[in-house]
């Protein structure tokens, strides 16, 4: 079973990370790119053409990570491929030992640099979760047998900060019912929204069967915050958060304090089982963040709950 699967079963703290995309180069180049974040992560997302920009494919990226000793989470989005190709990707990756799957609807083609492309969306996110579940049970969607079923660890994403706010937890519950065992959340710059979302899932008993993993993003200054606010669909950054960083004496340090604060807040919420780390700083901040949070490197973490409780205190 994958380490992520073990953590889900045993209750340990889960740290996932967003792996950098691949645009050319060799495996050795990629190993160097992963080096900063990988030692802190239980598993890392092999992304699927992030924000509708073409990169090395999710499957190729997951296999590369596997070869480099980093546990991948295969992201599968619905934008670029139909259900036949999606099943082929999941089964193809499983052949190489990739078990963690994260199912997304995906950004629209208009979010990328080839807006003229045809959008597919043959399935949507919740349907894709169910499809992955069928493969895990040993059948393609057609009902045809898979032979030896892959031991998939199926997850999904949800955005706690986008309208309709009151409905987001119900949508998450729908994904859990469809088979998601973990949910990586979109970065949320409204702590109250994250809190309400997680509380609704926790009160509904959903966090017993699904690990909630909020995303935190480390940035160097106010620029990326402004960019996310204006250009990334579904992310809103309050003006006071942007000015807090922009007007600080040392914006880079203030941006670090912000991500540390967000991480502490997320980990304090009952039902939250870990963090998904995204690093745009590339200056050693991820190590600093983990150390400040009291999170040891992966090699020193166990997969059981005791370890998780240690961090919460």
């Amino acid at each position: 079973m994958s380490r992520l699967g073990e953590l889900l079963d045993q209750g340990g703290l889960i740290i996932t990370g967003e792996a950098p995309v691949i645009d050319g180069g060799t495996l050795a180049d990629y190993e160097a790119k992963l080096a900063e974040l990988a030692p802190w992560c239980d598993a890392m997302n092999a992304t699927d053409n992030t924000a509708a920009h073409a990169h090395a494919s999710n499957v190729a990226m997951a296999i590369a990570m596997q070869r480099l000793g980093v546990e991948p989470i295969l992201q599968v989005v619905c934008r670029d491929k139909n259900r036949i190709a999606q099943q082929a990707d999941i089964m193809g990756a499983a052949l190489h030992g990739v078990e963690n799957i994260c199912c997304l609807t995906g950004d629209d083609v208009t979010a990328g640099d080839e807006s003229e492309a045809r959008r597919v969306f043959d399935l949507d996110g919740p349907q894709l979760i169910r499809l992955a579940n069928s493969l895990k049970e040993g059948r393609y969607l057609s009902g045809r047998s898979v032979g030896t079923p892959p031991a998939l660890v199926i997850g999904a994403v949800e955005n706690p900060g986008a309208p309709p706010l009151d409905y987001r937890a119900q949508r998450a519950a729908k994904k859990i019912l469809a088979g998601a065992r973990y949910l990586q959340l979109q970065i949320c710059y409204h702590p109250d929204r994250l809190e309400a979302f997680v509380a609704a899932l926790h009160e509904g008993g959903w966090t017993e069967r699904c690990a909630i993993i909020p995303t935190v993003v480390a940035v160097k200054g106010a620029g990326p915050l402004r960019f996310m606010d204006s250009a990334v669909p579904g992310i809103a950054v309050p003006a006071e958060t942007i000015s807090r960083v922009a007007d600080a004496e040392d914006p880079a340090e203030e941006a670090y304090r912000l991500v540390l604060e967000q991480s502490r807040h997320a980990l304090s919420l009952p039902g939250v089982r870990g963090l998904h780390l995204t690093d745009f700083r590339k200056d050693g901040s991820m190590e600093r963040l983990c150390r400040d949070l009291g999170i040891p490197p992966r090699s020193e973490r166990s997969t059981t709950r005791a370890d998780h409780d240690l961090v919460r205190v």
């Binding site: 949507d124 349907q127 994403v157 986008a162 309208p163 309709p164 669909p233 579904g234």
Partner: peptide
């Protein structure tokens, strides 16, 4: 099956 994560503010 519901709204995507890209709904604007």
């Amino acid at each position: 099956n519901g709204p995507c994560g890209g709904v604007r503010e």
